[in-house]
Design a protein around this nucleic acid. Structure first.
Lengths: 213, 213
DNA sequence: TTGACCATGGGCCTATCGACCTATTTGCCG
DNA sequence: CGGCAAATAGGTCGATAGGCCCATGGTCAA
């Protein structure tokens, strides 16, 4: 659930977060009052709340939502004073609007998992939630399968073209596709294309170089 | 080209604008200096510039980019004073960050078309650019064809399922698909799914109630 | 009224796809 | 070293999709 009175930020962020495979925006509010209403209605897992908002501010709204979902406060002025106020009304996170999007995503995952972002170990907490929690099926996709999906999502769909693009035989393309279908619970390449895009598997190659553990 | 020091807004907005079929983000800058560099490098059609930015502010940057592309200034404080400053440095638009995204989109289209948003007829100018400039092929899609594409993009791909979903015969589904293929220059439903998503044809039904001319 | 376009439906035929099975090589992990 | 998963490749076969042609009723504008 997002709350911010600046609609460009609100709608932009909503769009951006929706594009992250394991995150979902269930509602947006333009002020504290709307936030309170929507939270009671939709019961989100996490709230992202701007500190400054007309009518009922983010701080004030959180004060009224004492038993609501965990909230991350977002602000332009990330000073100690605001931070203290946010903490006082029960916010479990406090981020500047200058935060990069992937960090925000990590913060949302962390808070959704019940962790707090108010401690000294912020870096470690965020780090441990850096990667998206992929759906059971998608997590088991092999690198080559992801590559094939990415290619498919770029509009190359025939067995022949895929084979040429990936420098493998048509047979192998069909084999990979069959594995993908099974893992994702789908049956054809149209659905595969949809899933590929939904999972953010299009464009280059997500290679999270994992050297240790 | 977008410039704003608040990365949540910057990246969120970039994502959101990229999602609009006829708009493209060619770069983002976090301050005026970066903006100046990037504009010279990528020569965008339109700049969206935050008034307040560290180092070189939006106002200052525009002052240096006198012969650059048309710029829309965006700010949290949409007061007359800031507006005057924006106009003084050659901005052709001045919008609050509380502007809804579709209005921003219209503003970008208008400015890209060479119009100014500084006049009294702001409403009319925006209105005339409310709808996306679709690609030649996509523009000629019939409502039913768009509906089919949307359904396809939702993961319903087999002729049979599509027929049931749309309450028509399998034959008609194939006929519609054939028309779509021809209009979009593609050959199968995997590509159709990709295009549908790319064109923003997924989710509800874009029904721009056009009563008068 | 006539034509253009849309939505609907049909038939036919071939290319392609997806399901099922097997197999080899490579590299990693225990 | 032995096993396992990934990537490669092959085969067969029935189901499905796509290409091409045609038809009808409805709407809307010329």
């Amino acid at each position: 659930m997002l709350a911010d009175d600046h609609r460009l930020l609100l709608e932009g962020l909503a769009q951006a977060i929706s594009g992250i495979p394991d995150l979902e925006v269930v509602g947006t509010a333009e002020d504290g009052d709307e936030l309170i209403q929507l939270v009671e209605l939709t019961q989100p897992d996490v709230m992202l709340v701007d500190v400054e908002m007309p009518n009922t501010s983010g701080i004030a709204a959180l004060g009224q939502l004492t038993d609501g979902p965990p909230a991350i406060m977002v602000t332009m002025h990330a000073d100690a004073e605001h931070r203290a106020k946010a903490e006082a009304v029960g916010a479990v996170g406090f981020l500047s609007k200058s935060t990069p999007l992937p960090v925000l995503a990590a913060a949302i995952r962390a808070v959704a998992a019940g962790e707090s972002l108010m401690g000294d170990d912020l870096e470690q907490v965020l780090d441990s939630h850096r990667e998206p929690v992929l759906t059971p099926g998608a997590a088991s996709l092999t690198p080559r399968e992801k590559e094939l999906l990415a290619t498919l999502a770029s509009g190359i769909s025939s067995t022949d073209d895929l084979a040429n693009e990936l420098f493998i035989s048509q047979k192998t393309v069909k084999n990979h596709l069959a594995s993908i279908y099974e893992k994702l619970g789908i049956t054809d390449r149209a659905q595969a294309a949809v899933e590929a895009i939904r999972l953010g598997l299009h464009r280059p190659s997500p290679e999270p170089d994992r050297s240790d553990s």
